[in-house]
Computed example of a mutant assay.
Amino acid sequence: MLPRELRMRDGGDFAVAVRKGRRAGSRTVVCHWAGAEDPLRVGFVVSKAVGGSVVRNRVKRRLRHVVRELTEASALPATGLLVVRALPAAADATSVELTDDVRRTSGRATRPADAVSS
């Protein structure tokens, strides 16, 4: 479970990250990132395209676990808004694949804008 202070609960925060933030995707997830002065908050979007309610909840639990590990390892910035959107392939992905995809896509999305062009 993610600590309460890391959870994104406000719909406005989701909208800011998804609509105005930077995006990076893989086969299983898309990460949306919006830099902010506030401490890091993370939200998850798992639509019905991923599967039924049991599958969606399993994917959310697995993604929360991955993000918790990344925050404990300081692999994510300390400030900003991160939305992790699961794609249908996430339902069949192994934990290693999910971890690699979240680590890679969140790293690309949170990379400073001047580092992206080089």
Rank of each mutant, 00 (worst) to 15 (best):
D92N: 09
L2G: 04
A78G: 10
A86Q: 05
V116T: 08
L40H: 05
L98P: 07
E37A: 12
D38N: 11
V96Y: 06
A93Y: 04
P77A: 12
G43W: 02
T94N: 05
R27V: 06
V59Q: 09
A24M: 10
S106R: 04
R41W: 03
R56M: 00
A75R: 14
A93D: 07
A89K: 11
T110S: 07
M8N: 06
T110Q: 01
E37P: 00
N57S: 13
A75N: 03
E37V: 00
L6R: 14
E69C: 13
A91H: 12
G43D: 09
P39C: 06
R58V: 05
L82I: 06
E97R: 13
L2N: 07
T28V: 09
V30G: 10
F44A: 10
S74Q: 14
S74R: 15
A93M: 01
V45D: 13
G11A: 09
E37T: 05
P39S: 09
F44R: 13
G21M: 10
A89N: 08
N57F: 00
A109R: 03
D13V: 05
V46H: 08
F44V: 04
V16A: 12
L70W: 05
T71M: 07
G51F: 01
R108H: 10
V16I: 11
P3G: 11
V42E: 14
P3A: 15
V16E: 13
V54R: 14
A109S: 03
A24W: 09
L82K: 00
S117L: 14
E97M: 06
L76V: 08
M1K: 12
R58K: 13
R111H: 09
T110I: 02
T99C: 10
R64I: 02
M1S: 14
L2I: 02
C31E: 04
R62L: 10
E72L: 09
R108A: 14
N57Y: 02
D100K: 08
V102P: 02
P112A: 11
A34C: 01
R85H: 09
T105P: 03
D92S: 13
A75C: 10
V29G: 04
P88D: 09
K20A: 12
A91Q: 11
G51I: 03
G51R: 07
D13R: 14
R103I: 01
R108M: 12
R19N: 08
T99H: 15
A91T: 06
L6A: 10
R103L: 12
R9C: 00
D38K: 12
R58E: 12
R64T: 07
A34S: 13
S95T: 11
T99P: 00
S117R: 15
V116Q: 14
V50S: 04
R68G: 15
L98F: 06
H65S: 15
A75Q: 12
A49T: 03
G12W: 03
R68L: 13
M1N: 12
T105Q: 14
A109Q: 04
R19W: 00
R108G: 01
A113V: 09
A91D: 13
T99Y: 14
V16L: 14
G35M: 09
A73F: 06
L63W: 04
F44K: 13
R103H: 15
L40S: 05
